[in-house]
Amino acid sequence: MLVPKRKAAEGRLIPQQQKVINGVNLTEPFNTIDAISENAEIAIFTFRASNKWISGGQNETVINDYDGACQSFDRATPFVFRKDEPAILLGEDTGANPVEYLLAALAGCLTTSLVYHASAKGISINGVESTCAGHLDLRGFLGMDPSIRNGYDAIQIEFKVDADAGREQIEEIVKVAQQRSPVFDVVSRSVPVAVTLA
């Protein structure tokens, strides 16, 4: 969103001073919160993806347009994600498989949430790394045992955070990241998904 300008004493507009921590412009979130307080429609976003099967376990997803802040956006260059399966799962291993992309999305969203909230608290981050592991039993996907989930039955994520803060503060921002991460919310809670045939 655009940074509002404040009026000088004589009535002319001057740029609002920017505060940046960890590469995050902290002026923007507070301006966004103010704008949403005045018009809740600004908070509604719709993201889209289009997917096309190629061959075997290979398919390709294109990410381009999205709606948000009462506007529609098209990217100059769409993002393209190639997916496949490892050879042991009948693929050619030309790309990460969908459940691996899920881990990437979860790690990325938690990291962004952590950095944004640390920045809002004035905590300087020197580095963030994470490792993820998801455990999946193929008997669910193959329909061999109806008591076994088709997807992950557990996911573990371990963070290493180098920050100008004590252990307790770092633990707190990791906790806040879980509370505010959209992808963590989607993965850890049941979300209605409607699948239709055109």
Results as ranks from 00 to 15, higher is better:
residue 76 A to L: 10
residue 131 T to W: 00
residue 42 I to L: 15
residue 134 G to A: 04
residue 45 F to M: 08
residue 117 H to S: 06
residue 53 W to Y: 11
residue 63 I to A: 02
residue 117 H to Y: 15
residue 139 R to D: 09
residue 38 E to H: 12
residue 91 G to Q: 09
residue 125 I to A: 04
residue 116 Y to V: 15
residue 42 I to W: 07
residue 119 S to Q: 04
residue 29 P to L: 03
residue 106 L to N: 02
residue 31 N to S: 14
residue 118 A to V: 12
residue 34 D to K: 14
residue 83 K to F: 12
residue 115 V to R: 03
residue 40 A to L: 02
residue 116 Y to C: 09
residue 67 D to S: 13
residue 128 V to L: 05
residue 74 D to L: 15
residue 98 P to A: 14
residue 73 F to W: 13
residue 67 D to V: 00
residue 145 D to H: 06
residue 67 D to R: 11
residue 78 P to I: 15
residue 143 G to W: 10
residue 44 I to W: 02
residue 102 L to I: 07
residue 46 T to F: 07
residue 88 I to Q: 10
residue 146 P to Q: 06
residue 112 T to Y: 07
residue 72 S to Q: 12
residue 102 L to F: 08
residue 65 D to C: 09
residue 76 A to K: 08
residue 108 G to R: 04
residue 45 F to N: 10
residue 80 V to Y: 07
residue 79 F to D: 01
residue 98 P to F: 11
residue 48 R to I: 05
residue 147 S to Y: 01
residue 30 F to D: 11
residue 24 V to D: 01
residue 102 L to P: 00
residue 30 F to S: 07
residue 31 N to Y: 04
residue 70 C to P: 00
residue 145 D to V: 07
residue 147 S to T: 10
residue 29 P to D: 03
residue 105 A to L: 05
residue 120 A to P: 00
residue 34 D to W: 06
residue 96 A to H: 06
residue 44 I to E: 13
residue 22 N to I: 06
residue 108 G to D: 04
residue 110 L to H: 00
residue 117 H to T: 10
residue 68 G to H: 11
residue 140 G to F: 12
residue 94 T to K: 13
residue 147 S to V: 00
residue 79 F to L: 14
residue 39 N to P: 03
residue 49 A to S: 13
residue 48 R to G: 13
residue 124 S to G: 05
residue 75 R to W: 12
residue 43 A to P: 10
residue 54 I to K: 10
residue 21 I to C: 08
residue 114 L to H: 00
residue 127 G to Y: 06
residue 92 E to R: 09
residue 79 F to E: 03
residue 112 T to R: 00
residue 116 Y to R: 07
residue 91 G to R: 09
residue 72 S to L: 06
residue 55 S to F: 08
residue 58 Q to P: 00
residue 21 I to Q: 05
residue 143 G to F: 10
residue 122 G to M: 12
residue 27 T to K: 02
residue 97 N to C: 10
residue 132 C to Q: 02
residue 34 D to A: 14
residue 144 M to I: 11
residue 127 G to D: 03
residue 97 N to Q: 08
residue 142 L to T: 02
residue 124 S to Q: 13
residue 125 I to Y: 05
residue 88 I to V: 14
residue 146 P to K: 11
residue 134 G to C: 06
residue 127 G to W: 06
residue 123 I to N: 01
residue 42 I to C: 07
residue 125 I to E: 01
residue 40 A to R: 03
residue 121 K to I: 05
residue 93 D to M: 11
residue 39 N to S: 11
residue 38 E to R: 15
residue 108 G to M: 09
residue 29 P to S: 02
residue 107 A to Y: 01
residue 38 E to V: 01
residue 77 T to L: 12
residue 103 L to H: 07
residue 95 G to E: 08
residue 23 G to P: 03
residue 87 A to N: 10
residue 49 A to Y: 07
residue 59 N to M: 13
residue 114 L to Q: 02
residue 50 S to W: 09
residue 52 K to N: 12
residue 32 T to L: 15
residue 118 A to M: 12
residue 51 N to A: 11
residue 26 L to T: 06
residue 133 A to S: 10
residue 140 G to W: 12
residue 83 K to E: 13
residue 81 F to I: 15
residue 47 F to E: 00
